[in-house]
């Protein structure tokens, strides 16, 4: 029991450390103007996803943990494909947030990450894939964390978070793009690039809220029922 707990705690520490380490690392890359940023950032993003995956593997997930993630990812993927004609309007973030709220941060992370991975099979894989995995995973993860500490008691906090998550997603993706592909990197150049992406990110943020408002309450209710049903249906496990 104690070793289990200790390893879970260790897993948590690794997760938080990764979350802090990645931006710091990115900043250092930019600051010291490392030449092979494209390669280094790609590897960094891949490695940033790994602790979350390994922790999930280690938790020995049961079908009732696995299937909600699978279904929500499939749903978000289909949503992303259906909304592909309208750029930067995608229901992925809102679906990931609801998953994080109902099924916890780990499920939130995995839903985000696996949606990015699976949907890019249709939208196109590229060096952005690990970054999108990380960004959407983070959105789900933070939603789970905020729910568990009780920040989401008021619905409007979730909407604010939804809006912020759209911007966060943009921030991560833009930073990756700037650090990897702009050289020599200057403050003005970076600000100009962030500025150029701002309206797209705003569109994404607004779209996330627009999707979130109608689905938040009914979906939370529906998913809570499903969760109960999953828990009831298993007995000998």
């Amino acid at each position: 029991m104690t070793t289990d707990k200790r390893s879970i705690n260790r897993g948590r520490i690794v997760e938080v450390a990764t979350l802090i380490a990645l931006p710091v690392f990115m900043f250092l890359c930019a600051y010291y103007e490392i030449e092979q940023t494209a390669l280094v950032t790609l590897l960094a993003a891949i490695f940033a996803n790994i602790p979350f995956f390994i922790n999930f593997e280690k938790s020995r997930p049961k079908p009732r943990h696995i299937l909600p993630i699978v279904i929500m990812s499939a749903l978000a993927t289909v949503g992303r494909i259906l909304f592909a004609p309208i750029p930067h309007v995608k229901p992925v973030s809102s679906i990931v947030i609801v998953t994080g709220i109902v099924f916890g941060r780990q499920s939130g992370y995995l839903t985000g990450a696996l949606t990015a991975l699976a949907s890019n099979m249709f939208m196109g894989q590229g060096p952005w894939t690990p970054w999108q995995m990380f960004a959407w995973g983070l959105i789900g993860f933070l939603a789970g964390v905020m729910e568990s500490v009780g920040l989401f008691r008021h619905r409007w906090v979730v909407y604010v978070y939804g809006f912020a998550s759209g911007l966060l997603f943009g921030l991560i993706m833009d930073s990756w793009h700037i650090i990897s592909f702009i050289s020599p990197l200057t403050w003005t150049g970076a600000i100009a690039a962030y500025g150029a992406g701002f309206f797209f990110n705003l569109a994404h943020a607004i779209a996330t809220v627009v999707f979130l408002v109608p689905i938040l309450k009914p979906w939370t209710k529906k998913l809570t029922r499903i969760k109960l049903k999953f828990d009831l249906d298993h007995s000998v496990e």
Binding site: P63, R64, I66, L67, P68, V70, I71, M72, A74, L75, V78, G79, P91, I215, P218, W219, K222, L223, I226, K229, F230, D233, H234
Partner: peptide, 17 residues
Amino acid sequence: VSILMAWSMENAIETAD
């Protein structure tokens, strides 16, 4: 999408079984 979610989840219970 809401109907789709509920329906898929319901089916997933059987997949879990």
